[in-house]
Deep mutational scan, measured.
Amino acid sequence: MSRVPSPPPPAEMSSGPVAESWCYTQIKVVKFSYMWTINNFSFCREEMGEVIKSSTFSSGANDKLKWCLRVNPKGLDEESKDYLSLYLLLVSCPKSEVRAKFKFSILNAKGEETKAMESQRAYRFVQGKDWGFKKFIRRDFLLDEANGLLPDDKLTLFCEVSVVQDSVNISGQNTMNMVKVPECRLADELGGLWENSRFTDCCLCVAGQEFQAHKAILAARSPVFSAMFEHEMEESKKNRVEINDVEPEVFKEMMCFIYTGKAPNLDKMADDLLAAADKYALERLKVMCEDALCSNLSVENAAEILILADLHSADQLKTQAVDFINYHASDVLETSGWKSMVVSHPHLVAEAYRSLASAQCPFLGPPRKRLKQS
């Protein structure tokens, strides 16, 4: 649940008159999402009104509101027999009622949201009550392989729920002597030191190019640089560091992050930047690179990204790559990247197969709970 924001200063709310007192009302909304995959969808019983329910879910471990999704594969009634019906059901509720908006969509073979439908307002739910769409999607369109909505005969539904909580009022009075504290510009100011090479005390040599930097900042941000300058190493004695395995453009992006906490060109060089972040123990930059690479996972590059993640101990990226390969196994196994990995990294192939087997055979063990970014 997000923290209630402070109200904007009255002088910034309007260029008009300023009242002596004010009130700011925040209506709290808890948002969460749920993904439900139905394997072997074409084998569902086709009687009209037949119901399939998901397991229950909530916004978190401490949330007492429990929900589930309900599907009628062949419609709810005679009117909707040519459609799939989809509903959000409130299973248990400690209150007399709650209000919530919802959005349903289908994830296609690429994991993209399609055929989205959402409620136009927050509906009133009581325990045992459901709301949804009797005519969510035509069955003939859903079952047509050309539309790519049932890869490997799996129907994957994605649901986003927004639950309306209580409202909170914050009130106060205006004073004539309003003090406005300026925003912190530390990142910009440190970035200026790097860009202008002011007050530098060490030189970093990268592929024949020299960059002036500040030992204190490098040591504070990177345990690797800290070790170089702290001990009686040649880098500490000469205040000069030779860097041979990072390209200059990648190095500059890494230094921008060290000084400012930002990497504006990360998406263009996420793979190389991940390697640099791993070498210099820049954990936050490493996770930022993992996130960017996750966003660009595809059938063509899944094997290469899995190898990269394994090489640099990028655990979150590795998990996402394995899950992606499992979901698109029939396509990924035909790529040149996968065939190369079979020869060069057989242990990763074995890991992917083990994960695929456990996903398809849940009876082999208890269900695993899916539970950071600093």
Rank of each mutant, 00 (worst) to 15 (best):
A277T: 07
L285S: 02
A11C: 06
P151Y: 04
D331C: 12
A263D: 05
K286G: 03
L107Q: 11
G49K: 02
F229R: 15
V241F: 03
T319N: 04
C93A: 08
E50I: 02
M269L: 05
D63S: 07
S96Q: 13
P367G: 14
A350G: 01
A187Y: 10
S355V: 06
D144K: 12
L297G: 00
S119A: 12
P367H: 08
P362Y: 15
C205K: 11
A220P: 14
I170E: 01
G49S: 01
S42A: 06
E232I: 03
Q209T: 12
E47C: 01
S85N: 14
N301G: 07
N169K: 02
E351I: 07
L311F: 03
E300Y: 05
E242Y: 11
E304N: 11
E253V: 07
L311P: 01
A303C: 06
C205A: 15
G148R: 07
R185W: 09
Y353M: 14
A122E: 12
P9Q: 14
E232Y: 13
S2G: 00
F363S: 11
S105P: 01
P264W: 06
S162T: 15
T156R: 10
Y24G: 11
V179H: 07
V163P: 06
A213S: 05
R138Y: 01
K129Q: 14
H312M: 14
M341D: 00
F229A: 11
S59K: 02
A303S: 04
A270P: 01
S355G: 04
L371P: 13
S358I: 01
K31C: 10
R70K: 10
L143G: 04
G111N: 11
E247T: 06
V168R: 01
A100Y: 06
A19K: 08
K369N: 03
K372P: 07
H231A: 14
L89V: 08
F363H: 14
F324W: 05
V206T: 15
G192H: 04
A357M: 01
S58M: 14
L155P: 03
T319H: 05
E253L: 06
G172Y: 03
L142I: 11
M228C: 13
L273H: 00
L333T: 10
Y83C: 11
D152N: 09
T25G: 00
S344K: 10
Q360E: 15
I27M: 06
A213T: 10
R221Q: 13
I307K: 03
P366N: 15
R3C: 12
E20L: 10
S6V: 13
K53S: 03
L107H: 15
Y259H: 01
M269E: 01
K134Q: 01
K268P: 09
A100Q: 01
L90H: 10
I106V: 03
T56K: 08
R139F: 10
